[in-house]
Design a protein around this nucleic acid. Structure first.
Lengths: 336, 336
DNA sequence: ATTAGTAAATAAAACCTTTTAGCGCAATTT
DNA sequence: AAATTGCGCTAAAAGGTTTTATTTACTAAT
């Protein structure tokens, strides 16, 4: 266990000052008019001894950590998991690192996590905000630390934001069900004020209105257990004799599928919001509204990096189109 | 955007020294015989102004970051995703934080990530090591930084390790297939020297030997595309007229299922290693060898924390039992 | 009256960088 | 001739903690 080598060791070994070494290592050799000969000598030596600066000391001095905080709803949901992975590899190329945490939609936990990231002086945030997090986000903004929201936002707060066109996604999905001649189309959502949920509701309702159909809406408690969700979904689908259902999230759809298995009823035509491995494999495979995960991740990073570099002033809101992936679960209804 | 408050501000405001404040804040008031009156005065004031020490400065001084590095194979695989989540919440309670990264089984990326975590001075590592990472792990050990491996290990290296009993899991699964009267039982694995794969192979082979059955083994390239995997699995299952298959990972099983859908052949009886939402939902539902995720996460953290506190000297290897969850995909064979 | 001991607090060093301000000298401009 | 500029480099401050070694002001013992 050998001792870490310091910048002062380099300076001493080469008989020059620490400052000079620091300038050279931070690509300020030209700017500070340090001779090429010396620059090369330092660089060679540094490489030879494998010197790596102490990132902590660096951060302490500069106030920059090159770490970004990613606060997401649930890392085990593949939608978020995939976004996290894409973000991770994107920022990696730019020399940034990610610390992530899942909130599981718990406001208090989210607040704590944000506080902790703030204490660790992350350079910026990407957040899927839970209900009730508006003030915290506002505080971050006031502290002048870049924040980009995704998946949902706060209507009353000017923030950078990247998300999918939830209205259009739900509208297209519902319209598709109408076209396929379904007559009793239900919508499953959550008790939540989050914008993405509201937009999906509105998309559903608008399409139903356009087609002059009666709407059926069931909301599930956000903290409901799997069993509770399954039971209420069974009741919703069976008692209303629905012939089609649009689920506003992939896990609600999965709860629905589990319910149909557990309570042994036939799942009607269905569409889920957000794709999932399950949906491609099932018999019949499930039609989904798929969010442009890659584009979302790319835009999140781009906006955050621009902000970190101070290159943008006005807030940016990006709304990206969803794609309806039509599979077997929404074949045209056979009228008896 | 108000200025951050410092420990020196506290000291000045109360007319005492920085040292005293520091002692009190670090629970050394008694040890350093600081009067209770003063202790209370400081604590109250700190609470009132909401002082939070600068974690960077703290880490720079103490050499401890209270951050642990988690290097896993693939965060989007629910097996790893769930372990990550459990670990995250466990260490959170202990005041530690997690930085994670996925390697996707790329050695070079793994090396880079470990180097970067090391540069950031994480206090300890939890690693699912890729092939070829032995030297890097050895170096970490020599630098006296705690490392716990999981899922797989290096036979030639004395390290802490937590994993499932892969041999027993595969053995039980294979024995179950034999009992159900299947006669042509295949095993799908990876071209990899990783221990967990070898152990699963051996479990399969041992059970086949015990039952005096011919074995069928197919290996898939680790970097194979989904399509390549699907094609070779189709050939393996169809050409050998297998009536049962044991898949050594959940994603191989999923590739198999996709293949049966794409190439339109009937999937024989099957068992997958590691559970997955899909497996419960499919018709028929899939029998799995389930690893004790919760126990694995708990033991990983326990061992790492003990090591961080210097409470253990000898290396610990924990092998935890797997559970065979019998579902519909392995109903007894009907002999014609 | 001196010494020893102790309680309560502190000054200063240490952790390792980056960055500001400036030095000494030669060449150029006023 | 005096003032300015350019060059190549550096001393020292700053960033905010923790911790070691020490001081101060007492009381108790010799």
């Amino acid at each position: 266990m050998k001792k870490r080598i310091l910048i002062s060791d380099i300076a001493k070994a080469l008989g020059i000052s620490v400052t000079t070494v620091s300038f050279i290592l931070n690509d300020k050799a030209k700017e500070k008019r340090i001779s090429e000969a010396l620059t090369k000598r330092v660089l060679d030596y540094v490489k030879k001894v494998g010197y790596k600066p102490n990132e902590l000391a660096k951060s302490l001095r500069t106030g920059k950590t090159k770490i970004l905080g990613l606060i997401i709803e649930d890392i085990s949901n593949p939608f978020f998991g995939n976004i996290a992975r894409l973000i991770e590899s994107k920022v990696y190329e730019q020399g940034y690192r990610i610390i992530y945490c899942s909130t599981n939609n718990d406001v208090e936990k989210a607040k704590e996590l944000i506080q902790m990231f703030y204490d660790r002086q992350v350079d910026g945030f990407i957040i899927t905000p839970s209900d009730g997090l508006e003030d915290t986000v506002k505080q971050l903004q006031q502290s002048n630390i870049p924040v980009v929201l995704f998946d949902r936002y706060f209507p009353g707060l000017e923030t950078d934001y990247v998300g999918a066109d939830n209205f259009q996604g739900a509208f297209d999905a519902t319209s598709h069900l109408c076209q396929q001649a379904y007559k009793r189309i239900g919508f499953v959502s959550l008790y939540s004020d989050q914008t993405q949920m509201k937009e999906r509701s509105e998309g559903y309702l608008k399409a139903m209105d356009n087609n002059k159909q009666q709407s059926f809406i069931q909301k599930v408690q956000m903290d409901a257990s799997d069993d509770e969700a399954m039971e209420s979904l069974k009741d919703f689908i069976c008692e209303n004799r629905l012939d089609a259902v649009l689920f506003s999230t992939n896990y609600l759809a999965i709860s629905g599928l589990k319910a149909s298995k557990k309570y042994n009823f036939v799942m009607p035509a269905m569409i889920a919001f957000d794709d999932h491995t399950v949906f491609k494999l099932l018999e019949p495979s499930i039609t989904v509204v798929s969010q442009p995960i890659k584009e979302i991740a790319e835009n999140l990073i781009n906006i955050l990096l621009l902000r970190l570099q101070g290159k943008i002033k006005a807030t940016r809101k990006m709304v990206l189109p969803c794609e309806l992936k039509i599979r077997e679960s929404t074949k045209a209804k056979v009228t008896l």
